[in-house]
Design a protein around this nucleic acid. Structure first.
Length: 163
DNA sequence: GCCAACGTTGGC
DNA sequence: GCCAACGTTGGC
């Protein structure tokens, strides 16, 4: 396969969601969603670095099996997460001030759902994916960057038909 | 349901 | 600024 020189390189990320809360099927149905509720500074900074059009591996956590189930893209760059100011909301942060919002969200748009899940076990045992954050023992970052090589490798695995 | 990992909070 | 306690995430 030849490598394309024309396309500008896009940022690549991985975002986790519990399918019982919001799954790839929910995203496919909605087309677009706000990625709210990130309350970790490292993950927030990752969100703020995301550019429109960047690609995101959609990962199901606490699933059977857990793993990458599809691809989304950044539809809107970081803006203040409205949930942090809603009294009583699960994602409310009383310490965050409207004139200096602490937490950000981005909008994600559906791109594709893989025919088969690339399970966490498969990610961990793949020699081509060494250093992948989500496969690290104890990794709890809900959003993190992924190298383009890792991204393409995982997409190729996911597009394989089930046998 | 258990527990390891690890971020956050608060006492000092 | 240290560090113990606590809460949360997420695999298993």
């Amino acid at each position: 396969m030849r490598k394309s020189r024309a396309a500008p390189s896009l940022g690549c990320f991985l975002a986790k969601s519990e399918p019982g809360v919001y799954s790839i099927d929910d995203l496919a149905r909605d087309g677009k969603t706000a990625w709210e509720g990130v309350r970790n500074y490292l993950a927030r900074n990752t969100l703020r670095s995301a550019k429109k059009g960047d690609l995101v591996l959609f990962y199901h956590s606490n699933a059977e099996p857990s793993g990458v189930v599809g691809v989304a893209k950044v539809a809107r760059e970081a803006y203040p997460d409205p949930c942090q100011f809603i009294a009583g909301h699960a994602y409310e942060d009383p310490a965050s001030k409207p004139d200096e919002p602490r937490w950000s969200t981005i909008d994600l748009a559906f791109v594709e759902k893989f025919p088969s899940t690339v399970s966490l076990a498969a990610l961990k045992e793949d020699a081509a994916l060494q250093g992948l954050e989500v496969a690290r023992k104890g990794s709890r970052l809900s959003v993190h960057p992924v190298s383009q090589a890792h991204f393409e490798h995982i997409v190729a695995l996911g597009r394989k038909k089930k046998r």
